[in-house]
Every structure is written in C-alpha cells, then in structure tokens.
C-alpha cells in the first residue's frame, strides 16, 4: 500500500507543476505595475515650469475637480503621438491637465509647446526625473487620472482613443 502512494503522489505533484507552467506560458512576462491600484497624490515639493516657484503638489490638486497628470518630454516620440488627444481633452472645462516635464530643457520644451499647442493648465519641471518616480511612473509618456486626491486610473504609454473615451466617461 505504502509503495503505491509514493509514485502516485509524485506523479500528482508533477501534473500540478505541468499545469502551472502551462498557465505561466500564457501570461506575459513583462512586468507593468498594476494599473488599477488606487493611491493618494504624493505630497512633495515641486518646481513649476513657468514661474520657477516651488510649491507642494497638494496645492496643485486642491479642488475636487478631475485632474489628468501627464508626464511628457520634448524628446519623446510617443508624446507627440498622444498630443492631439491631450489637446482635445484640454477643451473640457471639468478637467485640468497638469504636465510633468520629464528630463527636458526649458528651451526644447517651449519649442515643443509652441509647435503643437499647449494643453497644460500647469506644468511641473522635473529635469532630473525624480518627481515622476514619486508617482510610481517609470517612463514617458504616462498619465494619471486624479480625483479627490486619489489616483483613480493609470495610463502607461501614449493615450489612445479608447482611453480618451474612458476619461470622458469618468468626468461625466
């Protein structure tokens, strides 16, 4: 009896391992932080792009409006791609768009905005890329939808038409 239990239990274990590997194959192996985690707006002091003023982030996101925080840079190609969507969103009065200018020079950034239009109500200047990290971002572009001091949605990579619809739905 004892002799039979051992082989069968070992075979059983291997079958389980097989199933797990099989399922593992189907998952992607590129890690992206969970886009649905809700966390609060980090409280850090930041430098404003236009005035060089240093203020706390909580002062920027103070009202209970919707905010879209967009991390961008003039050297980033996908940022140009998503720019029309940001321009469209900037027409909406219920939404304030805040930019984080990531590892950029002021001159290039200003040229970029002059060429393509400026959708941002306010811009944070982040030439070392450290502010983006406070938001849990790891690349450009990335966008965060914020309401009541909470990040309710994260968009990694350029905004698409789909995410545009979703943002509009949220605001309504």
């Amino acid at each position: 009896m004892k002799n039979k239990i051992l082989p069968f239990s070992i075979i059983f274990v291997f079958i389980i391992i097989f199933v797990i590997f099989y399922k593992g194959l189907q998952n992607t192996n590129i890690y992206t932080p969970d886009s649905k985690t809700i966390f609060e707006v980090p409280s850090v002091s930041v430098k404003l792009f236009n005035s060089d003023e240093i203020i706390n982030t909580l002062e920027i996101f103070n009202s209970n409006k919707f905010y879209l925080l967009n991390i961008w840079s003039s050297w980033c190609v996908p940022c140009k791609q998503e720019h029309p969507i940001l321009m469209e969103l900037s027409q909406n009065n219920d939404l304030e768009i805040i930019g984080i200018n990531y590892k950029d020079t002021k001159k290039n950034a200003n040229d970029f905005l002059k060429d393509l239009g400026n959708p941002y109500d306010n811009i944070i200047f982040d030439n070392k890329g450290t502010n983006a990290i406070e938001w849990g971002a790891y690349g450009v572009p990335e966008s965060f939808l914020i309401n009541n001091n909470k990040i309710i949605r994260k968009y990694i990579g350029p905004l698409s038409k789909g995410s545009l619809q979703e943002i509009k739905l949220f605001i309504k």
Binding site: F21, Y22, L25, N29, Y31
Partner: peptide
C-alpha cells in the same frame, strides 16, 4: 516564461511543445 536578459528569441508555441515533451519524458 521567465523574465531575463537572455530571452532574446521568445516563442510561446515552442515553449508549449517543449513543455509537453519534457513532462512526457518525466512521466
């Protein structure tokens, strides 16, 4: 299936085949 600097040529279909083959050998 693993995340590594070495995964240059990935192909899940191949993976599945090797997996099945591997486990039939084990059994």
């Amino acid at each position: 299936i693993l995340n590594s600097v070495h995964t240059f040529a990935n192909d899940p279909e191949r993976g599945l085949f090797i997996l099945i083959f591997l486990f039939s050998l084990i059994f």
